[in-house]
């Protein structure tokens, strides 16, 4: 467990670097998003490209929350990544910051609900679930999801959850297991994944 909930400058640099590193990995997936969007548009499922990719975009939140085990880590991981993206990736402009804050709160919520005491599959799944619900609610307004019929909304929601569960849940757990075996996390306060 974590010894201190206090953030030192090293923790902040570490969290920001995670966001940047993941951003550098995700850049290569942009073409997948564009390809999916173009392919899905004629069948009326263009927004699904969003939901399929959502897990990749929000992954930094559950991951930092899960490995750093401090209140606020999930939020900071996602939000600082968005700040970086705004300045250096740039394309989504100011909405990146808002989405980043919303996704950050969303993944943080899962860990808040367990009182920052439980860090296992349950809390990770909870974080994935809150991320899906909150980001979906935001897209009801931002991307006009409220206009779609009920069946489509269910489909989009399920696809989004699967994507977030794969990247934020399964992949995060595998990464955490590798970190645990390397004993590198001990100095950041996390262990016993």
């Amino acid at each position: 467990m974590n010894l201190s909930n206090h953030y030192h400058v090293r923790d902040i640099i570490f969290i920001t670097l995670i966001g940047i590193a993941f951003g550098a990995i995700f850049i290569s997936t942009n073409f997948i998003y564009n390809f999916l969007t173009v392919v899905l548009t004629p069948v009326g499922l263009a927004p699904m490209a969003n939901d399929i990719n959502m897990g990749i975009w929000v992954m930094a939140g559950p991951l930092t929350g899960f490995i750093l085990r401090k209140p606020g880590a999930g939020f900071l991981g996602e939000f600082l990544a968005a700040v970086g993206e705004m300045f250096f990736g740039g394309q989504w402009g100011a909405s990146t910051l808002i989405s980043g804050a919303i996704q950050g709160i969303a993944s943080e919520l899962g860990f808040t609900l367990t009182g920052y005491k439980v860090y296992n599959w349950f809390s990770l799944c909870l974080s994935c679930l809150t991320t899906t619900i909150v980001t979906f609610a935001w897209d009801m307004f931002k991307n006009g999801y409220a206009e779609f019929h009920f069946g489509m909304l269910i489909l989009l929601f399920v696809v989004r959850f699967i994507s977030i569960f794969f990247f934020g849940g399964i992949l995060t757990k595998m990464i955490a297991a590798l970190l645990d075996r390397s004993h590198m996390l001990a100095k950041f306060g996390g262990s016993n994944v």
Binding site: I13, A21, F22, A24, I25, F26, I56, L171, I175, M184
Partner: peptide, 23 residues
């Protein structure tokens, strides 16, 4: 690839080292 845990693991190790050095 972007779905390999090893890639993220390596990236995290780099982030850890660099955060130490920068701090």
């Amino acid at each position: 690839s972007y779905w390999s845990p090893k890639l993220y693991f390596k990236a995290l190790l780099i982030a850890m080292n660099w955060s130490d050095e920068l701090a």
